[in-house]
Design a protein around this nucleic acid. Structure first.
Lengths: 228, 228
DNA sequence: CGAAGGCTTGAGACCGCTCAAGACCCGTGG
DNA sequence: CCACGGGTCTTGAGCGGTCTCAAGCCTTCG
């Protein structure tokens, strides 16, 4: 997930190495897939696609992080997911006639492998483990949405923030908010103000300390116990 | 989707005929899949699986409707999806070690085809169109969740109800709420009281009439225009 | 006819949102 | 090194949509 956070370096290597996409796949198959797919580099901030466009391609994220979000009025958005290396997306390409629902924007420089619909079909038949990868990646993303819906329906603002913090990878008792607070807030279904207040709340209760994007978790157990 | 609503009759036929699962698949492959899968009949109200159990099987819904929901305290639940004939579910089986997130309960008598994990893998390799079906079904469900999240984040209670009504299949200007109002409310992320009030609101504005589960849509255009 | 379950209606409280202003952070350029 | 400026985050005050709790109603079914 957050492993490739500063993959500034990784991108200079062959992207094949970085991606968990290829695990359990023969070298010849890898090479073939790389050859029929088109490798694209995406500068930070660029959009790979936008809501409403027709979906002609499927994508595999080789490195970097991409934000999927739904536009919600001028300057507003609802963040759906943060994608990381190995994730598959643009899945709507499998439903001819459909249109893209979300925007895809690079949060950092990204490497993406893209496949035309026709090539995708062929690749899945020829390399079953490729179809397998799509299925497992899609299933993971599906479970992610499920958990987001669960949290949004069942937990209060502060509980959602606590849960998010606990799910972040941490070194010692310290963790780092990997994206802009505004974006994280949106992913949690909160306004930036509410997110901020929830962090303050947790800090006031002595559970965490916040300075900028750095968060120290003083009491993971009590934090966890907030989630009931 | 709602085509098989009153498939009381369809179930008496060979379930193979009813399901859109098999489209584009040779008869021999169909037969083989039916033979390695186990056909299960589920009486109304029965649970196929429950949250927390380990996922050993993948499922294809042949007929009937199944409610996926997340338990939320005593007698409470958050409805995630209503599944119909042809839908694939139990996808977590593809992620060994994971546990089921939702409950699956039959809303009417159902026929389900279930596959052990191992057989599933084999089937996908041997019958690529079967893997294809899983991918497209999962993608459709994924888009469904996406749209639910979008609606829940961006629309008011009454707007969500209006949208739901417009999406129901209707004969003339009449439609029918296919499940208990309590369940539909939950799917829309509302309390039953709020759902009821929203319906009354729309009725008071002359846009619809409600009697029991029957809804007459007087002015679809104005109803649509509520969604901005 | 009675009971049970589902739905509706009402009154009140609360959580998170909105709007607005001020503080902070950080990269940039003088 | 410091001052500047844009964007991001925080803080405050007030509002409002939805939830909660509690009756009452309606339909269905035994």
């Amino acid at each position: 997930m957050a492993l490739a956070a500063d993959s500034q370096e990784a991108r200079t290597h062959d992207a094949r190495i970085a991606s968990p996409l290829w695990m359990g796949m023969a070298c010849t198959e890898q090479a073939w897939l790389m050859s029929i797919g088109q490798q694209v580099h995406l500068p930070r901030g660029d959009f790979l696609f936008r809501r409403g466009a027709s979906c002609t391609k499927g994508y595999v994220l080789l490195s970097g992080h991409i934000k999927l979000s739904i536009p919600a009025g001028p300057g507003q958005e609802k963040v759906i997911e943060f994608l990381g290396a190995g994730d598959v997306f643009g899945e709507s390409v499998l439903l001819p006639g459909h249109h893209l629902i979300a925007d895809a924007q690079a949060l950092e420089p990204c490497d993406v492998l893209s496949f035309e619909r026709h090539d995708l079909q062929a690749a899945m038949v020829r390399v079953p483990s490729f179809a397998q990868k799509w299925l497992t990646s899609l299933t993971k993303r599906f479970e992610g949405l499920l958990r987001d819906i669960e949290s949004a329906s069942l937990l209060s603002a502060t509980q959602r923030v606590a849960q998010y913090l606990l799910r972040q990878p941490r070194i010692g008792n310290q963790t780092k908010l990997p994206f802009h607070k505004r974006a994280i807030a949106s992913k949690l279904g909160l306004q930036p103000e509410t997110f901020s207040r929830s962090l303050q709340q947790l800090a006031a209760d002595g559970l965490i300390s916040v300075r900028g994007s750095r968060v120290v978790i003083h009491d993971p157990v009590r934090l966890q116990s907030l989630l009931v």
